[in-house]
């Protein structure tokens, strides 16, 4: 917003909920409350689900805290009180996803992983392996998958064709996550080798997709962060997380080369600049205050 661009949030918490609380429950973190979308397949299935074109059989996971959505298991600490509440929230979420897809000017997607877990029943892809954040892993129903270049290109192409149908003027910006894998599910393969494969596949796929679609562009944040020139200085001590200065540098380059805006030296990301709360709640509080004052003024009388 500092640069005159809005991060489009189509699904925010109700105004009656304070910003501090909303943030804890992942409102405003994502454009809609879908959580991390690691793979192109996950993105494509989300769009299909939002438009009622795909309904996975695995619907809800019962957890000690409540019911979890298998397709965004970490989105709501404490879970949902029932499958019915989960479904109601999911419908609101899908409406927000539709709004997001139809009304955004620029759609940004960061390709994160090629490895995923999916349902053997209908191919539904989970963001996390069932049994980790919730659910139960069942080898009869769940399987590991490591997507190929062709699969990633096919999934994102299907998504892009669909997006252009509902939002013909949208521009698509693709990036590849510079964050290496923390672990791999490939047997007998080092996480280092798996990371190299995954990033190579995603990088090739984005190149092919940029060549295929006139409205899709690749922005090399992956190279900016991971390239030899950076000498690893954009990574935190854990060698995975990207330092704020790395993020700021990427954003500065993006603003300069894609938006024609010079933002100067890297600086910390801005804090939320929308401090306006719920005007209605504020008015209600004011009214209550008046009544409470009147109650005190009336104290000399009967109070009855």
């Amino acid at each position: 917003m500092m640069s005159g661009y809005n991060y489009f949030v189509a699904e925010d918490a109700h105004l009656a909920i304070s910003k501090e609380i909303a943030k804890k429950y992942n409102y405003g973190t994502f454009s809609a409350r879908f959580g991390n979308l690691y793979t192109a397949r996950q993105l494509w299935q989300l769009a299909q689900r939002a438009y009622g074109r795909f309904t996975p059989q695995e619907d809800a996971w019962e957890h000690e805290d409540g019911w979890l959505d298998p397709y965004r298991p970490n989105i709501q600490p404490g879970g949902f009180v029932s499958p019915e509440e989960l479904h109601a929230d999911r419908e609101q979420h899908f409406a927000a996803v539709r709004t997001m897809l139809e009304e955004c000017d620029v759609f940004v997607f960061t390709f994160g992983l090629t490895e995923a877990w999916r349902s053997k029943v209908d191919g539904a892809v989970f963001p996390l392996c069932p049994g980790t954040a919730g659910g139960t892993f069942d080898p009869e129903r769940h399987e590991f998958v490591n997507f190929t270049v062709d699969e990633v290109v096919a999934d994102f192409s299907a998504f892009t064709d669909f997006l252009l149908e509902v939002n013909p003027d949208v521009k698509i910006l693709m990036t590849v996550s510079p964050v290496p894998l923390m672990a791999t599910a490939r047997a007998d393969t080092s996480v280092i080798v798996s990371t190299a494969y995954s990033k190579a596949v995603l990088r090739v796929a984005t190149e092919m997709l940029a060549a295929k679609y006139g409205q899709a562009f690749y922005f090399p944040s992956y190279e900016v962060i991971t390239g030899n020139h950076a000498r690893g200085r954009y990574f935190e001590e854990d060698l995975r997380e990207v330092r704020p200065m790395g993020v700021a540098h990427v954003m500065r380059l993006f603003m300069k080369h894609y938006c024609g805006i010079e933002t100067g030296a890297p600086r910390p990301l801005p804090a939320r600049d929308d401090d306006s709360g719920d005007a209605f709640a504020e008015k209600m509080a004011e009214n209550i205050g008046v009544i409470c004052d009147e109650e005190l003024l009336d104290q000399g009388e009967s109070a009855g």
């Binding site: 918490a13 109700h14 009656a16 909920i17 609380i21 909303a22 804890k24 429950y25 409540g66 709501q76 600490p77 404490g78 879970g79 949902f80 009180v81 509440e85 109601a88 929230d89 609101q92």
Partner: peptide, 9 residues
């Protein structure tokens, strides 16, 4: 519909 956990929070 506001999720119950959010109302409580």
């Amino acid at each position: 519909i506001i999720p119950f956990v959010l109302v409580k929070a």
